[in-house]
Design a protein around this nucleic acid. Structure first.
Ligand code: DCP
Ligand code: MG
Length: 481
DNA sequence: GCGGATCAC
DNA sequence: TATGGTGATCCGC
């Protein structure tokens, strides 16, 4: 029963590794071009379909993250929709949305039947599980999450004062990595195509990425972090967790003052601003770092009452690991806030896997990992490129050759070898196909990668053209030498 | 072990 | 004209 229906959507992504710590991302971006983006949010459902079980990725942008005071969210949605509709990208989003709606309907059937049942026996069992979770609460650490403000954009503004006080974004006409706060007032956001952003804000200035600069600044701020916690955990170029419990023992200062000082040092040494959250664990610190952004900080006291009062009214979407899809699933069950997660714990228990249940409950209780460590072993190394569509096998092989060479060079830098190779194809209709293959011997050379990739292409040639994006990943590592 | 989905930045 | 790149996890087979 656990979660037969909910099949795929993988919740848990971050926290649930929990016992240890969050995941961790190192030196991102290598791409020269422009790069970035992840899961675009494009469109908006300008066309109103009354079906509530539909609309996840469509719209929902104007998240208020930073401003949007004066702007009309509906207008923004409309403009994005007009610019997106009928595009291959948008059609694919609609298709994914449709598939999700079908799953949701199934889930709702189960949910409705649960509501009719007498769950009193389950009830006490679930309450017991909540108590077990509660026992894991640890309020003995002071954890800080630091997050630079509009990171890439702030660096570009710093280095080119003519960009200041104007709506500006970093990327190119195809994709933006981030925008400054002025641009956010127009609805311009990370992972938005530049050409759409310009419809929202015709005066928008778009500057190209300089990843080397961002990496250099990242190095600077990490050095500052190390002064306060040598074991700090970097989560990306602009973000890290620190456990300043020990540091506080060495001085007579409040957590707030220490964090003020960290942010001051960042500003003095980089001329950039950061925001921070201070709380008992990583989950809460992360949520807090967003509250007074930009250039602010927020302290949540290590106190159960304060924590519960803080988390109860929070939208589930604020929980790291609950994204667009999971939010929509929960909303279907009338669960919009963390408090509602607790209220509906029995249903959550019946609807989801036990690990998902634990993840939701812990989040709703404000319980999270407080383990902050630097050590990290990568589990995969990948390279991907998007290009104008290709259909001739030989062209695909040529692309594969380039990627294989590049990947092999990267592997060499870290002396890595692996025994599983994954090739991901993104078709021009944005459908993605992954084919993975394990080999007996560890591989690391460009030729090995190329030869395996070539077979994979050959076997799948009919379903992967015309091709738009090509990605090659090596997994299952051990070190060479 | 594989393939699709989700999530973060 | 045009919707990224990198790394990780979960679920159902
Ligand atoms: N989909 C994304 C999201 C972010 N980034 C890059 C650009 C950002 O500058 C940087 C940090 O991401 P954040 O989510 O912290 O966003 P910002 O720092 O830009 O803004 P803020 O933290 O003030 O909201 O990562 C990216 O390339 N692609
Ligand atoms: Mg940031």
């Amino acid at each position: 029963m656990e979660s037969d229906i909910l099949d795929s959507h993988g919740f848990l992504i971050g926290e649930e590794l929990e016992g240890d710590d969050f995941h961790y991302v190192e030196e991102d971006q290598k791409n020269e071009n422009i790069g970035p983006s992840s899961i675009p949010y494009p469109s908006s459902t300008g066309s109103k379909n009354n079906d509530l079980i539909r609309n996840s990725r469509i719209g929902e942008l104007a998240s208020n993250k930073a401003g949007l005071q004066g702007i009309d969210k509906e207008k923004v949605k409309q403009i994005i929709y007009e610019a997106s509709k009928n595009s291959a990208f948008y059609l694919n989003e609609e298709k994914k949305d449709e598939a999700l709606s079908i799953k949701l309907k199934q889930m709702m059937k189960k949910y409705e039947s649960l509501k009719k049942q007498n769950l009193s026996t389950i009830n006490s069992k679930v309450d017991n599980l909540v108590q077990v979770a509660e026992r894991e609460r640890d309020l003995s650490h002071i954890i800080v999450h630091i997050d630079m403000d509009a990171f890439y954009a702030s660096i570009e503004e710093r280095d080119n004062p003519s960009l200041r006080n104007k709506p500006m974004a970093v990327g190119d006409n195809s994709m933006l990595t981030t925008s400054n706060y002025e641009a956010r007032n127009y609805g311009v956001r990370s992972a938005m195509p530049g050409f759409i952003a310009k419809k929202l804000c015709p005066e928008l200035i778009i500057v190209p990425c300089n990843f080397d600069k961002y990496r250099a600044v990242s190095k600077q701020i990490r050095e500052i972090f190390s002064r306060y916690d040598p074991d700090y955990t970097p989560m990306s170029l602009d973000e890290a967790y620190l456990d300043i419990t020990k540091y506080l023992d060495t001085i007579d200062e409040s957590p707030d003052n220490v964090v003020e000082q960290i942010r001051r040092e960042i500003h003095e040494e980089t001329k950039l601003t950061a925001s921070a959250g201070i709380a008992a664990n990583k989950l809460l610190a992360k949520i807090c770092s967003d509250l007074n952004k930009p250039n602010g900080q927020y302290r949540l006291q290590n106190n159960v009452d304060d924590i519960m009062n803080f988390i109860r009214p929070l939208s589930v979407r604020k929980i790291p690991g609950i994204g667009r899809v999971t939010e929509r699933i929960l909303n279907e069950m009338d669960i919009k806030t963390c408090g509602a997660i607790l209220d509906n714990r029995v249903y959550i228990h019946q609807m989801f896997s036990s690990s998902s249940f634990n993840f939701f409950i812990r989040a709703a209780l404000g319980i999270g990992s407080n383990i902050v460590k630097t050590d990290h072993k990568r589990k995969s190394k990948s390279i991907s490129r998007t290009f104008s569509s290709l259909s001739k096998p030989d062209d695909l092989y040529e692309k594969l050759r380039e990627l294989a060479d590049h990947l092999a060079a990267d592997l060499l830098k870290e002396r890595l070898q692996g025994k599983t190779i994954a090739i991901t194809f993104k078709l021009v209709n944005f459908k993605m196909i992954t084919r993975e293959r394990s080999v007996k011997k560890y591989i690391h050379t460009a030729d090995d990668i190329y030869n395996i990739g070539k077979q994979v292409i050959f076997i799948n040639i009919n379903r992967i053209i015309p091709l738009q994006t090509f990605e090659s990943t090596l997994i299952t590592f051990i070190n060479r030498f």
